[in-house]
Computed example of a mutant assay.
Amino acid sequence: MSERIVVVGAALWHEGRLLVARRSAPAELAGLWELPGGKVEPGEAPDAAVVRELREELGVDAEAGERVPGQWPLRTPYVMQVWTARLRPGSAAPRPLQDHDELRWLTPDRVWDVDWIEHDVPAVRDTLTHLEARDGV
């Protein structure tokens, strides 16, 4: 069996809200929502990938927190891991720089108001459970 490639999703949590991003590309995912993130580069730690991806995709200075327990299958050979993250003091406001055309900060009761990429749904559900247990959201 070939080695799995890890894709990190960032659960960027700020002032009781989760940042979600709407895909603009590729065409089959355009208009659907996801946690921002991307592939872990060879030799890169997953938490470092979270920080790099948030900088590249959203222009923010963030720090990774803890990994949300579990991982979720994407198309072979990819698997998704989710890490909590927070903006560092003085960070610029997030803005869509690549692969996204809109961002929203959603409270836990509004998370399901957007049309998620199907494979992100179980990861988002587990992430909300994790944040609730951690922060009482």
Rank of each mutant, 00 (worst) to 15 (best):
T84N: 08
G38R: 02
A21Y: 05
R95N: 01
R88G: 08
P73C: 10
P69S: 03
A133E: 14
E66L: 14
Q81S: 14
A45Y: 02
D113H: 12
L29V: 10
P36H: 04
K39D: 03
H119K: 13
E53C: 13
A11F: 08
D47Q: 11
P42S: 11
I117E: 09
A10E: 09
V6D: 15
R17P: 12
A64P: 13
A27V: 11
V111M: 13
A133T: 11
R22E: 08
R88A: 12
L103C: 03
A49W: 05
A85G: 11
T129W: 01
S91R: 05
G43A: 02
R95K: 06
D99R: 15
R104C: 02
E57S: 09
R75C: 00
Q81I: 00
D126Y: 04
L131E: 05
R110D: 14
V60N: 01
V121E: 14
K39T: 13
V82I: 13
M1A: 10
E53F: 04
G65Q: 04
L29R: 12
R4N: 13
V114K: 01
M1W: 03
E3W: 02
L97P: 08
G136T: 14
R88E: 15
T76I: 03
W33E: 10
R86W: 13
R52E: 14
L18D: 14
Q98F: 07
Q98Y: 03
Y78K: 12
V8Q: 07
E63M: 06
W13F: 05
D120R: 09
A123L: 07
P108I: 02
A48P: 03
W33V: 04
K39G: 11
E41G: 00
V51P: 02
R22H: 07
P69W: 01
A92P: 12
D126Q: 15
A62L: 06
P46C: 05
A49H: 07
V8L: 12
A62T: 11
W13K: 04
L74G: 02
L97R: 15
L97T: 14
H130Q: 06
E66D: 15
V121D: 05
A21L: 07
V51Q: 09
W33R: 03
W116K: 07
L87F: 04
I117C: 04
H130L: 11
H100K: 08
E66H: 09
V137K: 00
G16K: 06
W105I: 01
D47V: 00
V20R: 00
V68E: 04
P42A: 11
I5L: 15
P89N: 09
V40L: 05
R4H: 12
Q81G: 10
V7Y: 10
H14R: 08
D101H: 13
S24N: 14
A92N: 04
L12M: 06
V121W: 06
G38F: 03
T129G: 04
E66Y: 04
P73D: 15
L32S: 11
P108S: 04
D126F: 03
D109E: 15
